[in-house]
Simulated scan of single mutants.
Amino acid sequence: MDRMHLKIEASIIACVIMILLCSCNLFVTDKDKFYLDKDLNYTLSRIDIKKTGPDIVIPEKVGDRTVWRIYLADPYYSKIDSLDISNVKELESFTIKLFGMNTGTKLKKLDFSKNKKLKYIDISKTTSLKKVIFNNKCEYIYLKGTSIKSVNLKNLKELESFIYRDGPLEELDTSNNPNLESIKIADTNIKRLDVTKNPKLKYIIVDEGTQIIGPTNAQIEYNKRAE
């Protein structure tokens, strides 16, 4: 009887522990994982990676608030392995800045193709990032300190500003971007830039020695490459 009693007690204790563990997970909501800063017009500005894990899927809403702007600026986010923002249908602005070049980031790809309202993209010091898929409505793109060698801007008819700095970009085709007003590419591997199809260009920055093809009224500045 004593042995049977002990077995029953052990089973009950095990069940209680399982219930407690499950209940902890059940009570972790999106509000516990994602923080919308009301002082920044409810921008999503913090993610608790301990609760989300390194493979993060950002929800369309946090509580009753729709996510429309994401701003992640901290080396802490170098712990992110993947970032899925396909559910954020109302997203208009996306920024990630990891600071410091040796943050150990593993993020290799960002896909904005489902974010039809996204107009502003700012990605800095994300050294592992090799590919970005843009949405068609994007107007402003800033890439600095990535490992992106090529970009596809073909369908970005509304693009007004493209900036790329400190990375291995090898070529840039802007022939399908008639509304471009500013191109800034510095410390890259680009040797020539054709601006024949960019009649609205006002400002160009390229590295010294880069060949600019086509007539333009834009102001041109040459960047002295970093040693």
Rank of each mutant, 00 (worst) to 15 (best):
T127R: 12
Y120V: 05
Y164F: 10
C24I: 15
S11C: 15
H5W: 09
R225N: 12
I58Q: 07
N189L: 09
E160Y: 10
I133Y: 04
D74I: 02
V206G: 09
K144I: 10
E92K: 07
E221C: 12
K38E: 03
L129N: 02
I205Y: 11
L26R: 14
L129A: 05
D166F: 03
D194G: 01
D173I: 01
M1V: 14
F162T: 04
A218V: 09
I49T: 06
D194V: 01
Y140W: 12
M101T: 12
L91T: 04
D55M: 11
L159N: 01
I133F: 05
L98P: 01
Y140I: 06
E9K: 15
N198P: 01
A226V: 13
N223L: 12
K97S: 14
K116A: 14
G100E: 10
K154F: 05
A14N: 15
S93H: 05
I49M: 04
K106D: 08
T146W: 04
L6P: 03
D122L: 11
T52V: 11
E160F: 10
G104H: 04
V132A: 03
Y142H: 12
K33E: 04
A14I: 15
Y71W: 09
K125N: 14
G53T: 12
L172I: 03
L107G: 07
K144Q: 12
E227C: 13
G167M: 05
I17R: 12
S161F: 03
R3I: 14
I148N: 08
L91W: 05
N223F: 15
S161Q: 11
T174S: 02
S128Q: 12
R65F: 07
D194R: 00
L193I: 05
C138N: 11
L172P: 00
P59M: 08
D173V: 00
T43W: 00
T126H: 04
R46T: 06
Y42A: 02
G214T: 09
F27D: 11
S161I: 14
V57D: 13
D84A: 05
T188R: 01
P75I: 05
M101A: 14
F94W: 02
L20N: 09
K224S: 12
S113T: 14
A10E: 15
P215G: 13
W68A: 08
E181A: 11
S45P: 01
G214L: 01
L40P: 02
P199V: 06
L180S: 02
L107K: 07
T52S: 11
K197S: 08
T43N: 01
D194K: 00
G214C: 04
Y164K: 00
A186R: 08
S86A: 11
N177A: 06
L180E: 01
K224N: 14
N176M: 02
L72N: 00
I80R: 08
Y164M: 02
L110G: 03
G214F: 09
Y120K: 05
K224D: 08
D187M: 03
E139F: 10
C15F: 13
S113E: 07
R69M: 00
K184M: 05
T29D: 10
